[in-house]
Amino acid sequence: MTKRIQGKHIKHTANIKPRTQTEQISTFLIKSQTPYVSAIKKISKQLSKFEHSTGVKKYSQYKQVSYITVKGMGKSIEKTLSVGLYFQERYNVDIHTGTVEVLDEFQQDEDESVYKKRLVSSVELKIWLKKE
């Protein structure tokens, strides 16, 4: 066991790359606090918005997007996979496993912080759209 570092633990997000508008609207991130049903509902809504070529609420990125990405890491991998299983009944779902690097900050006082890098397993789903 490694020794615990003293200080207030600040977990930094792993999403630090700037995302394009298209990426923003076609990606769904699952956190440990995300309720399962809300995730299902939100993803279904996103799917239906990209599936229909007409209608009031249509994204202008309709043509660029062919799948919705769902990401989860660490504790939320299980939830992400069960979301994937739910959508597998109606859609083609690809599952990719991977690792992401995150940064932990241990704030000791106003000036001093100790940083530590950590690797976390991750999973990424691609839910392929059924276009009209």
């Binding site: 930094h12 997000t13 999403n15 630090i16 700037p18 995302r19």
Partner: peptide, 10 residues
């Protein structure tokens, strides 16, 4: 400047 500005930069 290549990263999205989050809490990462103190």
């Amino acid at each position: 400047t290549s990263v999205q500005d989050t809490d990462l930069i103190p």
